[in-house]
Nucleic acid binder design. Structure first.
Length: 559
RNA sequence: UGGGGGAUCGUCUAGUGGUAGGACAGCGGACUCUGACUCCGCCGGCGGGGGUUCGAAUCCCUCUCCCCCAGCCA
């Protein structure tokens, strides 16, 4: 067992310094999703950080929904988010909504107006955009920038009271239209939006924007460290600009610290891209087992612990990164290997008849549920004259290192005896449909491993099932990312392979709820939500490491 | 080409003037009734160039490359 790396990072060091300097005497963080979609594994990084830090420092972490844009948000998303957070294993110390603070935020806006730091702009969106300038050219002042405070106050109140049309005017901070930081070029604080809000209903027709709501919400909640992703770095001066000027919680200001977001290769992570997959029908929904959403990972069979472990391994820095999917896969293998009960299942069955095994006879084998954990017990497995093996475990003209079955070759049936292939029954097209074998009863407890070992199921009592084999969503590790880039052309056509005629050993007729099984030699599997009485559907969470596949690939590549 | 960030093995990450370490991947081997697991070994890195210093991934200068920002989204 390797030593767990010390869970330190630049953020924790900053917190240590803040505590040492007496800037704060406790630690308060928050996890602030917008309830406009489902959580994905990138959010897991934020949760790991925010909840983890609060926990380790004896502080608290609230769940705060950033619900400042009623046009995009709804209560169903909020409920789904809560469910996903709990599933991942995190518990919030309190729950809040930015909309809880609408009244206070409004008061903050009034305070800014009174101080001459905000004004109502009657330009339309296009004019505001034009006036903002560009990356290299400064903006120009709005013709309404000089409105006296009293007029702004009256206008803003009118906005609140619904006396103007949507988009007719906005409230802007009066900062600096020539700032090299575009966020400081008189950012919009409030817009008029007549849209029923999931929580406040029709009480408001003006809504604050993120930049104005977030920092103040942090301050109201007593957040000490506001952790967010790197793209908000340029917003920090604005975050602080408000805090510097508002009477709200001036003494103990939250500190915003940014870290880089999580990226995984062979998939996409942005809400935009994920929506495209769902809307384009490329996946079955937000919980499709191929999706990097928490719901997708959950349905696939990933464990919360493996995801948390993954995040802890990946670490927290400010560097752009793309983590290898293999890292995540390894984490779930690492979790499941010592705990997953072993069973035998044949995904693509090929019939096998043991010619010298008496018809009608059966025997029962006690197969251990785990090779290294006797405490996990054993289950009975039936063996008889007719079995099914994996089609891949037979090859007519095997290459050198093929340790499986082939005409004339010998192999061990897992937990049973050696068999030798003595004949192949073929269909009209010459495809093998049945193997004839002879077994050697004296090899039942043979020691040492001299042949290959293959798994099998008994024809008489095997259970039918559908098995869904998942692979990476995309065929390309680094798909095009931009707004107009079409990553969908790189969808992996084999990201889902359905095997409808799999056969499982009889013990799997009623899978234990919540248990991830290892199908020996194949991978880890979990019952899909589509499973029901009389219909078994298993998802492959991840394959086992497979050095034969590697040899095979090399052979194919090298000729 | 304005501003803000970032560059350490293939990938992620530790390091904060004193032997560049870990994880994953890869390669080789041992073990094995899972080509699994486990174990052992190997491979492989400080973006480039200067400077300071007894000593630099770390400090200074310079160059290069990468990411983010022009929503009344978050």
């Amino acid at each position: 067992m390797s030593a767990t790396p010390a869970p330190t990072n630049f953020i924790r060091r900053q917190i240590d310094a803040d505590l040492a300097a007496g800037r704060h005497d406790r630690v308060v963080t928050r996890f602030p999703p917008e309830p406009n979609g489902y959580l994905h594994i990138g959010h897991a990084k934020s949760m790991w950080l925010n909840f983890g830090i609060a926990d380790d420092y004896g502080g608290c972490c609230t769940l705060r929904f950033d619900d400042t844009n009623p046009a995009r948000e709804d209560a169903e998303f909020a409920a789904a988010i809560e469910e996903d957070i709990r599933w991942l294993g995190y518990r919030w110390s309190g729950i809040a909504f930015a909309s809880d603070y609408f009244e206070q935020l409004y008061a903050c806006a009034v305070e800014l107006i009174e101080k001459g730091l905000a004004y109502v702009d009657s330009q339309n969106a296009d004019d505001i955009r034009a006036g903002r300038g560009t990356l290299t050219r400064p903006g120009v002042d709005s013709p309404y920038r000089g409105r006296p405070a009293a007029e702004n106050l009256a206008l803003f109140e009118g906005m609140k009271d619904g006396r103007y049309r949507d988009g007719e005017m906005v409230l802007r901070a009066k900062i600096d239209m020539a700032s090299p930081n575009l966020n400081l070029r008189d950012p919009v604080l409030y817009r008029i939006r007549r849209h029923r809000h999931q929580r406040t209903g029709d009480q408001w027709c003006i809504y604050p924007l993120y930049d104005f709501a977030h920092g103040q919400s942090d301050a109201i909640e007593g957040v000490t460290h506001s952790l967010c992703t790197l793209e908000f770095e340029d917003h920090r001066p604005l975050y602080e600009w408000f805090l510097d000027r508002l009477t709200l919680a001036k003494a103990r200001r939250p500190r915003q610290i940014e870290f880089s977001r999580l990226n995984l290769n062979y998939t996409v992570m942005s809400k935009r891209s994920l929506s495209q997959l769902v809307e384009g029908g490329d996946v079955s929904g937000w919980d499709d087992p191929r999706m990097p959403t928490l719901r997708g990972l959950r349905r696939r069979g990933f464990t919360p612990a493996s995801i948390r472990r993954f995040i802890s391994l990946v670490g927290i820095t400010r560097k752009a990164n793309v983590i290898e999917m293999g890292q995540l896969e390894n984490c779930v293998r690492e979790h499941l290997e010592p705990v997953a009960p072993r069973v035998m299942a044949v995904i693509e069955p090929l019939k096998l008849v043991i010619e010298n095994y008496p018809p009608g006879r059966t025997e029962t084998i006690d197969a251990p549920n785990h090779p290294a954990e006797p405490g996990m017990g054993a289950r009975p497995v039936t063996l008889s004259r007719e079995l099914y093996i994996e089609r891949d475990d037979f090859m007519e003209n095997p290459p050198n290192k093929f340790l499986r079955l082939a005409p004339g070759r010998e192999v061990r049936l897992r937990y049973a005896f050696l068999i030798r292939c003595t004949g192949v029954v073929r269909d009209a097209k010459g495809r093998a449909v049945e193997l004839r074998c002879q077994y050697d009863p004296d090899t039942r407890h043979g020691g040492g491993r001299k042949t290959g070992i293959i798994h099998w199921v008994n024809a008489g009592d095997a259970v039918a099932a559908e098995v869904r084999l998942y692979d990476r969503l995309l065929s390309r590790a680094d798909p095009p990312a931009g707004k107009d880039a079409d990553f969908r052309q790189f969808l992996n056509p084999r990201s889902l392979v359905v095997r409808r005629h799999a056969l499982l050993e009889a013990s799997l007729a009623e899978p234990e709820p919540g248990v991830r099984y290892q199908f020996e030699r194949l991978g880890y599997f979990f019952p899909d939500a589509d499973s029901g009485p009389g219909k078994l559907v298993f998802n492959r969470i991840v394959t086992l490491r497979d050095s034969w596949a590697k040899i095979d690939r090399q052979r194919a590549a090298g000729g």
